[in-house]
């Protein structure tokens, strides 16, 4: 099955840890980091990068436009 492979890059400085991307991800790729950023928020990151399909759902719902999405056809 030709499945798309994706990856996200999160602007961890700007992320406010609202967790909306984590909820929006259909393949449960995103998790919140144990560490906090300078503002004290647990920023989002790829916890399970293998599952990412590059659907851009996380980037669509991100209120602070922190997420950049890349996608390749595997």
């Amino acid at each position: 099955m030709a499945k798309a492979k994706g990856a996200i890059v999160v602007d961890t400085v700007k992320c406010k840890g609202c967790e909306l991307c984590m909820v929006a991800c259909p393949t449960k790729v995103i998790e919140m980091a144990r560490e906090v950023n300078a503002k004290g928020f647990h920023y989002s990151q790829m916890g399970n990068p293998e599952a990412c399909i590059g659907c851009t759902n996380c980037a669509m719902v991100c209120p602070d436009s922190c997420i950049t999405v890349y996608k390749v056809k595997a």
Partner: peptide
Amino acid sequence: IVKEENLVYKKSMVLTDKEMHYCPGCTHGV
């Protein structure tokens, strides 16, 4: 995967780089 040619979504150029003052998860940002 993270290469310029594979880019599918990035922040719009019309948005400034200023950090929004809204609370986390605010619909205003969206």
